[in-house]
Structure formats: structure tokens, C-alpha cells
Design a protein around this nucleic acid. Sequence first.
DNA 1: ATATTTGTTATATATATTATATAACAAATA
DNA 2: TATTTGTTATATAATATATATAACAAATAT
Lengths: 127, 127
Amino acid sequence: MFIKIDLTSDVPIYVQIKNAIIEGIARGELKEGDSLPPIRQLAEDIGVNMHTINKAYNLLKDLGFITINKKYGAVIQVEGFNGAFMESLKEELRPIITEAFVKGMDRDAFIKLVEGIYDDFGGRRNE
Amino acid sequence: MFIKIDLTSDVPIYVQIKNAIIEGIARGELKEGDSLPPIRQLAEDIGVNMHTINKAYNLLKDLGFITINKKYGAVIQVEGFNGAFMESLKEELRPIITEAFVKGMDRDAFIKLVEGIYDDFGGRRNE
DNA sequence: ATATTTGTTATATATATTATATAACAAATA
DNA sequence: TATTTGTTATATAATATATATAACAAATAT
């Protein structure tokens, strides 16, 4: 687990950790069934408090990216997208797109940006 | 100005107001040169504190959507996108796209979603 | 000229969020 | 039996969000 935290960022640490782990899955570094480190260990590794990791893990659970139990710890298990996810995705996306549109960025330019990010995950396929 | 605030939302009120005003520009209801209501008036209209409006206006100014001065108040004046905007846009977009990708949403499905939102602003053109 | 309206600034208070620090618990593991 | 695990409970501190008053200086209206 290589997670770099930017303490100057306005993005909360537990959100940065959540993002980094989802990135790890997207890049294929973390696969279904893989275990994440115990919260105390990861906390020491990246130099933050145990509860901050715990918060990140529970957020990942709520978002449907991992399961947590005492037997196996935190295990990558991705719930596919559903209606609720699509709704929250739209709500997140809308103000971002609106800002870009108002600033003169046309549809094609925005789509190019999206394609560029998607290409980072290359030919990777989700099972 | 028709701004509806969702007090149960986890999105701060001043951000909701900022988003609503940018939406207004995108929909063509607010045009370059138009003045926004005085902060006290808008505050009373939507039932929030003066400082909350002030914060929203100053955020809009920092983001390059309005200018503020005592003579003309808050006036719509959109700064076109630049490198800094593109960078922050990418940073905002990346974790959202990554989540969608990991959940099995492919590039084309995501782009369709983007196109749907762009279509809300119809044939409108930004000068 | 005078009063009002404007954005701005200054305090103060209250609540929620974020992050850390310790401690303890129950279940699983070594 | 001791250790490790996620979990829960308190406590503290800093920051963010929102409200409430008050006052200021500049512009506007009467």
C-alpha cells in the first residue's frame, strides 16, 4: 500500500485514503478478495491516527468497495453500480459540468478530459 | 432568483447557493452584466444569514464568475477557463470517474451521462 | 444635507466535522 | 495464554459552517 497524504490539502485525510484505495483497485494493484492492512498497521505506515483509517475503511464499506469482519478484516469486494449510485454520481457531476460549461468548455473538450482519465486505467476490464 | 436550499443536505448552504447561481448562468437566466441581489435581500428571500450569502458571493468571485464592488454590487462576469481551472477540474473529476470505473461503469456509459447533463444546457452557447 | 443602502469587517456564539490520544472490549489467531 | 483484530467509548483540539449583532465607509436616494 503506497498512500501519500497531502496534509495541506482541503480534502480530509480519510477521504484521501478512501480515494487512494479505490485508485489501487482501478489500477489493478488491489484485486477482489485481497485484504487491506489492519487499521493500526496502515495508520503507522502513513503516520496518521488509527481512527482516521477506521473512518476511511467504514466509508469504503458504505460505498460498497469492501467488506469488513473480524475474521478476514477489510477485504476488497466491489458492489456493482445501482440506481442509488447513479443518482449520487449525477448529483456530484452536475455542478462540476455546469462550471466547466459556463467557463466556455464545450461538450467535446469535457469528454476528451473524461476519456483521458479513463485511459489511465488502460485496457483494464472489470469482471 | 429562485434558489431552493436543502437543509438536510451535507452540501454546505453557501456551496448550494454558489451552485444555484452558476446553474442560473448556464440556463441563461443570468447573463453577463446582470447584478445579483444585495446580500441582505437574498438572505431574507431564502431565509438564511447575511454572512452565508456573503460567503457564497466571495466564493463565486474567487472562482471567477462574478466581480464585486460597492458601486455595482455583485455582477456576473465570467473568467474563461485557464490552466489552473483545468487542473482543479481534473483533480475533482478523477476520484469520481475512478469510482464509476471500479463499479463497472464503462467509458461510454459515463460519457452518455456527461452528454445528458450537457444537453440540459441545450443549444446554449457561451460567448 | 440627510437618510438609506451597499459591501465589508469585527465579535460572539453554537454546532458539526476532522483528527488525534487513550483505553477497553470481544472475537479470532498464534 | 498472549497477541492481534475490528469495535466502541471518552476526551481534547482545531477547523468549518451558520447565525446574530454591530459598526464602518462608500455610494445612492430623498
